[in-house]
Design a protein around this nucleic acid. Structure first.
Lengths: 191, 191
DNA sequence: CGGTAGGGATAGGGTTCT
DNA sequence: TAGAACCCTATCCCTACC
Protein backbone atom coordinates (compact mmCIF):
# COMPACT_ATOMS: atom_id res chain seq x y z
CA UNK A 1 0.00 0.00 0.00
CA UNK A 2 2.75 2.39 0.88
CA UNK A 3 5.92 2.87 -1.08
CA UNK A 4 8.79 0.95 0.49
CA UNK A 5 11.41 2.19 -1.90
CA UNK A 6 14.08 4.26 -0.29
CA UNK A 7 15.80 6.35 -2.94
CA UNK A 8 19.49 7.09 -2.46
CA UNK A 9 20.32 10.67 -1.61
CA UNK A 10 23.33 12.31 -3.21
CA UNK A 11 24.88 12.51 0.23
CA UNK A 12 24.63 8.78 0.67
CA UNK A 13 25.99 8.22 -2.79
CA UNK A 14 28.97 10.45 -2.07
CA UNK A 15 29.66 8.56 1.12
CA UNK A 16 29.54 5.27 -0.73
CA UNK A 17 31.98 6.49 -3.36
CA UNK A 18 34.33 7.78 -0.70
CA UNK A 19 34.03 4.46 1.06
CA UNK A 20 34.98 2.54 -2.04
CA UNK A 21 37.92 4.86 -2.64
CA UNK A 22 39.08 4.24 0.88
CA UNK A 23 38.46 0.52 1.31
CA UNK A 24 38.00 -0.82 -2.21
CA UNK A 25 35.03 -2.56 -3.77
CA UNK A 26 33.58 -5.59 -2.08
CA UNK A 27 34.24 -4.24 1.39
CA UNK A 28 30.67 -3.25 2.05
CA UNK A 29 30.52 -4.18 5.70
CA UNK A 30 33.82 -2.42 6.28
CA UNK A 31 32.54 0.74 4.66
CA UNK A 32 29.39 0.55 6.73
CA UNK A 33 31.40 0.22 9.92
CA UNK A 34 33.79 3.04 9.11
CA UNK A 35 32.96 5.88 11.53
CA UNK A 36 33.47 8.26 8.63
CA UNK A 37 30.42 6.89 6.83
CA UNK A 38 28.38 4.91 9.30
CA UNK A 39 26.10 7.77 10.30
CA UNK A 40 25.31 8.80 6.74
CA UNK A 41 24.68 5.23 5.67
CA UNK A 42 23.00 4.03 8.83
CA UNK A 43 19.77 3.21 7.05
CA UNK A 44 21.55 1.01 4.49
CA UNK A 45 22.73 -2.58 4.67
CA UNK A 46 25.91 -4.02 3.23
CA UNK A 47 23.81 -5.58 0.50
CA UNK A 48 22.28 -2.20 -0.24
CA UNK A 49 25.76 -0.79 -0.69
CA UNK A 50 26.71 -3.59 -3.02
CA UNK A 51 23.57 -3.10 -5.09
CA UNK A 52 23.96 0.65 -5.28
CA UNK A 53 27.59 0.36 -6.29
CA UNK A 54 26.65 -2.07 -9.03
CA UNK A 55 24.06 0.38 -10.19
CA UNK A 56 26.48 3.31 -10.15
CA UNK A 57 29.29 1.60 -12.00
CA UNK A 58 27.21 -0.27 -14.51
CA UNK A 59 25.25 2.86 -15.31
CA UNK A 60 28.40 4.86 -15.87
CA UNK A 61 29.88 2.18 -18.08
CA UNK A 62 26.94 0.98 -20.13
CA UNK A 63 23.89 3.03 -19.30
CA UNK A 64 22.05 0.23 -17.53
CA UNK A 65 22.40 -3.33 -16.31
CA UNK A 66 20.42 -4.66 -19.23
CA UNK A 67 22.69 -2.96 -21.72
CA UNK A 68 25.69 -4.21 -19.78
CA UNK A 69 24.50 -7.78 -20.11
CA UNK A 70 23.89 -7.35 -23.81
CA UNK A 71 27.27 -5.74 -24.27
CA UNK A 72 28.99 -8.53 -22.39
CA UNK A 73 27.14 -11.06 -24.49
CA UNK A 74 28.35 -9.45 -27.66
CA UNK A 75 31.88 -9.51 -26.22
CA UNK A 76 31.74 -12.85 -24.43
CA UNK A 77 34.99 -12.54 -22.58
CA UNK A 78 38.29 -11.61 -24.17
CA UNK A 79 38.66 -9.30 -27.15
CA UNK A 80 39.81 -7.15 -24.31
CA UNK A 81 41.86 -4.91 -26.49
CA UNK A 82 41.18 -5.64 -30.16
CA UNK A 83 38.48 -3.05 -30.32
CA UNK A 84 39.75 -0.96 -27.47
CA UNK A 85 40.87 1.77 -29.79
CA UNK A 86 37.58 1.68 -31.63
CA UNK A 87 35.74 1.95 -28.38
CA UNK A 88 37.94 4.83 -27.39
CA UNK A 89 37.24 6.74 -30.55
CA UNK A 90 33.56 6.13 -30.13
CA UNK A 91 33.83 7.44 -26.60
CA UNK A 92 35.62 10.51 -27.77
CA UNK A 93 33.09 11.09 -30.48
CA UNK A 94 30.26 10.74 -28.00
CA UNK A 95 32.06 12.88 -25.51
CA UNK A 96 32.77 15.62 -27.98
CA UNK A 97 29.10 15.73 -28.79
CA UNK A 98 27.63 15.59 -25.32
CA UNK A 99 30.10 17.01 -22.87
CA UNK A 100 29.49 20.67 -22.30
CA UNK A 101 32.62 21.73 -20.39
CA UNK A 102 35.61 19.60 -21.20
CA UNK A 103 37.13 18.34 -17.99
CA UNK A 104 40.11 20.49 -16.96
CA UNK A 105 42.56 17.64 -16.91
CA UNK A 106 41.68 16.88 -20.50
CA UNK A 107 41.18 20.33 -21.91
CA UNK A 108 44.92 20.84 -22.03
CA UNK A 109 44.93 18.43 -24.93
CA UNK A 110 43.17 19.42 -28.16
CA UNK A 111 39.98 17.37 -28.49
CA UNK A 112 41.24 15.51 -31.53
CA UNK A 113 44.84 15.08 -30.51
CA UNK A 114 44.43 11.44 -29.67
CA UNK A 115 48.05 10.97 -28.66
CA UNK A 116 47.90 13.83 -26.22
CA UNK A 117 44.57 12.74 -24.90
CA UNK A 118 45.79 9.23 -24.39
CA UNK A 119 48.89 10.18 -22.50
CA UNK A 120 46.84 12.48 -20.33
CA UNK A 121 44.45 9.71 -19.43
CA UNK A 122 47.29 7.27 -18.96
CA UNK A 123 48.90 9.58 -16.44
CA UNK A 124 45.69 9.78 -14.50
CA UNK A 125 45.44 6.01 -14.42
CA UNK A 126 48.98 5.59 -13.17
CA UNK A 127 48.38 8.25 -10.57
CA UNK A 128 45.26 6.44 -9.41
CA UNK A 129 47.20 3.22 -8.95
CA UNK A 130 50.13 4.91 -7.26
CA UNK A 131 47.90 6.68 -4.78
CA UNK A 132 45.84 3.67 -3.88
CA UNK A 133 46.52 2.94 -0.27
CA UNK A 134 46.09 -0.79 -0.26
CA UNK A 135 48.61 -3.44 -1.07
CA UNK A 136 46.67 -5.34 -3.69
CA UNK A 137 46.12 -2.32 -5.86
CA UNK A 138 42.81 -0.87 -7.04
CA UNK A 139 40.37 -2.61 -9.28
CA UNK A 140 39.08 -1.06 -12.47
CA UNK A 141 36.12 0.60 -10.86
CA UNK A 142 38.22 2.24 -8.19
CA UNK A 143 40.45 3.65 -10.89
CA UNK A 144 37.47 5.00 -12.74
CA UNK A 145 36.16 6.54 -9.57
CA UNK A 146 39.51 8.07 -8.73
CA UNK A 147 39.81 9.68 -12.12
CA UNK A 148 36.26 10.91 -11.97
CA UNK A 149 36.66 12.44 -8.54
CA UNK A 150 40.17 13.85 -8.76
CA UNK A 151 40.12 15.01 -12.34
CA UNK A 152 36.49 15.84 -12.82
CA UNK A 153 36.14 13.20 -15.48
CA UNK A 154 32.72 13.26 -17.07
CA UNK A 155 30.82 9.97 -17.02
CA UNK A 156 30.85 9.93 -20.80
CA UNK A 157 34.60 9.51 -20.71
CA UNK A 158 34.69 6.37 -18.63
CA UNK A 159 34.95 4.16 -21.67
CA UNK A 160 38.06 6.02 -22.63
CA UNK A 161 39.65 5.30 -19.29
CA UNK A 162 38.60 1.68 -19.50
CA UNK A 163 40.12 1.32 -22.92
CA UNK A 164 43.38 2.93 -21.94
CA UNK A 165 43.54 0.77 -18.87
CA UNK A 166 43.30 -2.32 -21.04
CA UNK A 167 45.89 -0.89 -23.38
CA UNK A 168 48.34 -0.23 -20.58
CA UNK A 169 47.95 -3.81 -19.45
CA UNK A 170 48.49 -5.09 -22.96
CA UNK A 171 51.65 -3.12 -23.51
CA UNK A 172 52.96 -4.20 -20.10
CA UNK A 173 53.01 -0.83 -18.36
CA UNK A 174 50.80 -2.20 -15.63
CA UNK A 175 49.83 -5.71 -14.62
CA UNK A 176 46.43 -7.04 -13.78
CA UNK A 177 46.27 -9.64 -11.05
CA UNK A 178 42.95 -10.95 -9.87
CA UNK A 179 41.07 -7.93 -11.21
CA UNK A 180 43.41 -5.51 -9.46
CA UNK A 181 46.01 -3.35 -11.11
CA UNK A 182 49.51 -2.40 -10.14
CA UNK A 183 52.36 -0.66 -11.85
CA UNK A 184 54.79 -3.11 -13.43
CA UNK A 185 58.31 -2.80 -12.13
CA UNK A 186 60.21 -4.98 -14.60
CA UNK A 187 58.83 -7.16 -17.38
CA UNK A 188 56.02 -9.38 -16.15
CA UNK A 189 54.85 -10.89 -12.89
CA UNK A 190 53.33 -14.26 -12.25
CA UNK A 191 50.65 -14.77 -9.64
CA UNK B 1 6.51 -2.43 -34.68
CA UNK B 2 7.02 -5.05 -32.06
CA UNK B 3 3.97 -4.64 -29.88
CA UNK B 4 0.42 -5.06 -31.17
CA UNK B 5 -0.95 -4.10 -27.73
CA UNK B 6 -2.58 -7.21 -26.40
CA UNK B 7 -5.75 -6.18 -24.58
CA UNK B 8 -6.64 -8.00 -21.38
CA UNK B 9 -9.59 -10.37 -21.59
CA UNK B 10 -12.07 -10.55 -18.76
CA UNK B 11 -10.94 -14.10 -18.17
CA UNK B 12 -7.37 -12.99 -17.68
CA UNK B 13 -8.50 -10.20 -15.42
CA UNK B 14 -10.51 -12.63 -13.30
CA UNK B 15 -7.53 -14.92 -13.01
CA UNK B 16 -5.35 -12.02 -11.94
CA UNK B 17 -7.81 -10.99 -9.24
CA UNK B 18 -8.08 -14.55 -7.99
CA UNK B 19 -4.31 -14.76 -7.94
CA UNK B 20 -4.01 -11.63 -5.84
CA UNK B 21 -6.63 -12.93 -3.45
CA UNK B 22 -4.72 -16.16 -3.09
CA UNK B 23 -1.14 -14.93 -2.93
CA UNK B 24 -1.39 -11.22 -2.16
CA UNK B 25 -0.18 -8.25 -4.18
CA UNK B 26 3.44 -8.11 -5.23
CA UNK B 27 3.60 -11.86 -5.85
CA UNK B 28 3.36 -11.61 -9.60
CA UNK B 29 5.76 -14.39 -10.44
CA UNK B 30 4.09 -16.63 -7.88
CA UNK B 31 0.69 -15.98 -9.38
CA UNK B 32 2.08 -16.64 -12.82
CA UNK B 33 3.53 -19.98 -11.69
CA UNK B 34 0.41 -21.11 -9.87
CA UNK B 35 -1.02 -24.01 -11.90
CA UNK B 36 -4.44 -22.58 -11.23
CA UNK B 37 -3.68 -19.50 -13.32
CA UNK B 38 -0.65 -20.23 -15.42
CA UNK B 39 -2.55 -21.44 -18.45
CA UNK B 40 -4.90 -18.51 -18.53
CA UNK B 41 -2.09 -16.02 -18.06
CA UNK B 42 0.51 -17.80 -20.16
CA UNK B 43 0.86 -14.90 -22.58
CA UNK B 44 1.55 -12.43 -19.77
CA UNK B 45 4.72 -11.62 -17.89
CA UNK B 46 5.04 -10.85 -14.20
CA UNK B 47 5.53 -7.21 -15.14
CA UNK B 48 2.35 -7.33 -17.20
CA UNK B 49 0.50 -8.60 -14.15
CA UNK B 50 1.91 -5.83 -12.03
CA UNK B 51 0.97 -3.18 -14.58
CA UNK B 52 -2.51 -4.54 -15.06
CA UNK B 53 -3.08 -4.72 -11.35
CA UNK B 54 -2.01 -1.12 -11.05
CA UNK B 55 -4.49 -0.16 -13.70
CA UNK B 56 -7.26 -2.08 -11.99
CA UNK B 57 -6.70 -0.82 -8.49
CA UNK B 58 -5.72 2.70 -9.28
CA UNK B 59 -8.65 3.09 -11.61
CA UNK B 60 -11.02 1.81 -8.98
CA UNK B 61 -9.61 4.12 -6.36
CA UNK B 62 -9.05 7.35 -8.21
CA UNK B 63 -10.31 6.98 -11.76
CA UNK B 64 -6.88 7.09 -13.36
CA UNK B 65 -3.17 7.12 -12.61
CA UNK B 66 -2.97 10.80 -13.29
CA UNK B 67 -5.68 11.57 -10.77
CA UNK B 68 -4.02 9.21 -8.32
CA UNK B 69 -0.80 11.18 -8.50
CA UNK B 70 -2.62 14.43 -7.97
CA UNK B 71 -4.52 12.97 -5.05
CA UNK B 72 -1.37 11.65 -3.44
CA UNK B 73 0.31 15.00 -3.90
CA UNK B 74 -2.47 16.69 -2.06
CA UNK B 75 -1.98 14.18 0.78
CA UNK B 76 1.83 14.02 0.74
CA UNK B 77 2.33 11.16 3.15
CA UNK B 78 0.94 10.71 6.61
CA UNK B 79 -2.23 12.37 7.87
CA UNK B 80 -3.23 8.79 7.57
CA UNK B 81 -6.20 9.18 9.76
CA UNK B 82 -6.76 12.82 10.61
CA UNK B 83 -8.90 13.29 7.58
CA UNK B 84 -9.98 9.70 7.26
CA UNK B 85 -13.49 10.58 8.25
CA UNK B 86 -13.51 13.50 5.89
CA UNK B 87 -12.37 11.26 3.07
CA UNK B 88 -15.02 8.79 4.01
CA UNK B 89 -17.76 11.32 3.83
CA UNK B 90 -16.46 12.54 0.52
CA UNK B 91 -16.48 8.98 -0.70
CA UNK B 92 -20.01 8.49 0.46
CA UNK B 93 -21.03 11.70 -1.19
CA UNK B 94 -19.41 10.66 -4.43
CA UNK B 95 -20.88 7.22 -4.09
CA UNK B 96 -24.35 8.56 -3.53
CA UNK B 97 -24.00 10.53 -6.70
CA UNK B 98 -22.47 7.93 -8.93
CA UNK B 99 -23.48 4.51 -7.72
CA UNK B 100 -26.59 3.31 -9.45
CA UNK B 101 -27.51 0.22 -7.39
CA UNK B 102 -26.36 0.39 -3.79
CA UNK B 103 -24.39 -2.73 -2.97
CA UNK B 104 -26.51 -5.26 -1.07
CA UNK B 105 -24.18 -5.47 1.90
CA UNK B 106 -24.53 -1.76 2.34
CA UNK B 107 -28.13 -1.21 1.44
CA UNK B 108 -29.18 -2.68 4.77
CA UNK B 109 -27.92 0.54 6.31
CA UNK B 110 -29.69 3.78 5.46
CA UNK B 111 -27.51 5.86 3.14
CA UNK B 112 -26.88 8.52 5.75
CA UNK B 113 -26.61 6.35 8.81
CA UNK B 114 -22.86 6.68 9.02
CA UNK B 115 -22.56 4.59 12.15
CA UNK B 116 -24.37 1.67 10.61
CA UNK B 117 -22.47 2.01 7.38
CA UNK B 118 -19.18 2.06 9.20
CA UNK B 119 -19.84 -1.01 11.28
CA UNK B 120 -20.97 -2.83 8.18
CA UNK B 121 -17.77 -2.00 6.35
CA UNK B 122 -15.70 -2.78 9.41
CA UNK B 123 -17.20 -6.22 9.59
CA UNK B 124 -16.32 -6.87 5.97
CA UNK B 125 -12.74 -5.81 6.61
CA UNK B 126 -12.38 -8.08 9.61
CA UNK B 127 -13.91 -10.92 7.65
CA UNK B 128 -11.44 -10.33 4.86
CA UNK B 129 -8.53 -10.54 7.26
CA UNK B 130 -9.91 -13.56 9.07
CA UNK B 131 -10.39 -15.45 5.84
CA UNK B 132 -7.04 -14.67 4.38
CA UNK B 133 -5.20 -17.94 4.11
CA UNK B 134 -1.67 -16.77 4.65
CA UNK B 135 0.16 -16.21 7.86
CA UNK B 136 1.31 -12.66 7.26
CA UNK B 137 -2.16 -11.33 6.65
CA UNK B 138 -3.48 -9.53 3.58
CA UNK B 139 -2.34 -6.15 2.43
CA UNK B 140 -4.69 -3.28 1.79
CA UNK B 141 -5.36 -4.14 -1.80
CA UNK B 142 -6.24 -7.72 -1.01
CA UNK B 143 -8.75 -6.53 1.53
CA UNK B 144 -10.29 -4.19 -1.00
CA UNK B 145 -10.50 -6.96 -3.53
CA UNK B 146 -12.06 -9.35 -1.04
CA UNK B 147 -14.73 -6.88 -0.12
CA UNK B 148 -15.41 -6.07 -3.73
CA UNK B 149 -15.73 -9.72 -4.73
CA UNK B 150 -17.54 -11.15 -1.75
CA UNK B 151 -19.85 -8.25 -1.01
CA UNK B 152 -20.30 -6.75 -4.43
CA UNK B 153 -18.73 -3.52 -3.32
CA UNK B 154 -18.84 -0.90 -6.05
CA UNK B 155 -15.48 0.56 -7.04
CA UNK B 156 -16.60 3.98 -5.94
CA UNK B 157 -16.78 2.75 -2.39
CA UNK B 158 -13.18 1.69 -2.13
CA UNK B 159 -12.18 4.92 -0.50
CA UNK B 160 -14.63 4.15 2.25
CA UNK B 161 -13.02 0.78 2.88
CA UNK B 162 -9.57 2.35 2.82
CA UNK B 163 -10.57 4.96 5.33
CA UNK B 164 -12.18 2.48 7.67
CA UNK B 165 -9.12 0.28 7.41
CA UNK B 166 -6.94 3.13 8.57
CA UNK B 167 -9.38 3.91 11.31
CA UNK B 168 -9.40 0.34 12.59
CA UNK B 169 -5.61 0.44 12.73
CA UNK B 170 -5.67 3.72 14.61
CA UNK B 171 -8.11 2.53 17.22
CA UNK B 172 -6.11 -0.68 17.65
CA UNK B 173 -8.67 -3.16 16.38
CA UNK B 174 -6.18 -4.44 13.84
CA UNK B 175 -2.46 -4.01 13.50
CA UNK B 176 -0.48 -3.17 10.41
CA UNK B 177 2.90 -4.83 10.09
CA UNK B 178 4.96 -4.30 7.02
CA UNK B 179 1.96 -3.24 4.96
CA UNK B 180 -0.04 -6.30 5.97
CA UNK B 181 -2.95 -6.39 8.33
CA UNK B 182 -3.97 -8.75 11.04
CA UNK B 183 -6.51 -8.73 13.79
CA UNK B 184 -5.07 -7.53 17.06
CA UNK B 185 -5.29 -10.04 19.87
CA UNK B 186 -4.25 -7.95 22.85
CA UNK B 187 -2.82 -4.45 22.94
CA UNK B 188 0.09 -4.01 20.55
CA UNK B 189 2.68 -6.15 18.82
CA UNK B 190 6.27 -5.40 18.11
CA UNK B 191 7.97 -6.63 14.99
C1' DC C 1 26.73 -17.84 10.97
C1' DG C 2 28.11 -13.59 8.46
C1' DG C 3 29.50 -11.74 4.13
C1' DT C 4 29.67 -11.21 -0.87
C1' DA C 5 28.43 -11.92 -5.82
C1' DG C 6 25.12 -12.43 -8.98
C1' DG C 7 20.60 -13.48 -10.89
C1' DG C 8 16.11 -12.23 -10.67
C1' DA C 9 11.79 -9.88 -9.05
C1' DT C 10 9.22 -5.69 -7.83
C1' DA C 11 7.85 -0.61 -7.68
C1' DG C 12 7.13 3.25 -9.72
C1' DG C 13 8.16 6.73 -13.17
C1' DG C 14 7.93 7.28 -18.07
C1' DT C 15 6.45 6.25 -22.95
C1' DT C 16 3.59 4.61 -26.77
C1' DC C 17 -0.57 3.40 -28.79
C1' DT C 18 -5.41 3.76 -29.45
C1' DT D 1 -7.31 13.75 -24.65
C1' DA D 2 -7.49 10.14 -21.47
C1' DG D 3 -6.63 5.67 -20.34
C1' DA D 4 -4.73 1.00 -21.24
C1' DA D 5 -0.79 -1.37 -22.37
C1' DC D 6 3.97 -1.43 -22.41
C1' DC D 7 9.04 0.03 -21.33
C1' DC D 8 13.01 1.41 -18.32
C1' DT D 9 15.76 0.98 -14.38
C1' DA D 10 16.64 1.91 -9.26
C1' DT D 11 15.83 -0.74 -5.55
C1' DC D 12 15.03 -4.85 -3.21
C1' DC D 13 15.11 -9.99 -2.55
C1' DC D 14 16.83 -14.72 -2.92
C1' DT D 15 20.27 -18.23 -3.30
C1' DA D 16 24.78 -20.26 -3.89
C1' DC D 17 29.06 -20.11 -2.23
C1' DC D 18 32.61 -19.45 0.62
Amino acid sequence: MGAPKQKWTSQEETALKAGVLKHGTGKWRTILSDPEFTSILKSRSNVDLKDKWRNISVTAMYGSRKKAKLALKRTPSSHDDDNATALTIVAIANGAQHISPLPPALSCAPPRDFEGLFSSVDKMILEAIANFNRHLGPDGKSILLYVEERHNMQPDMKRLVTSRLKHLVNVGTIVKIKHRYRICRNGAEQS
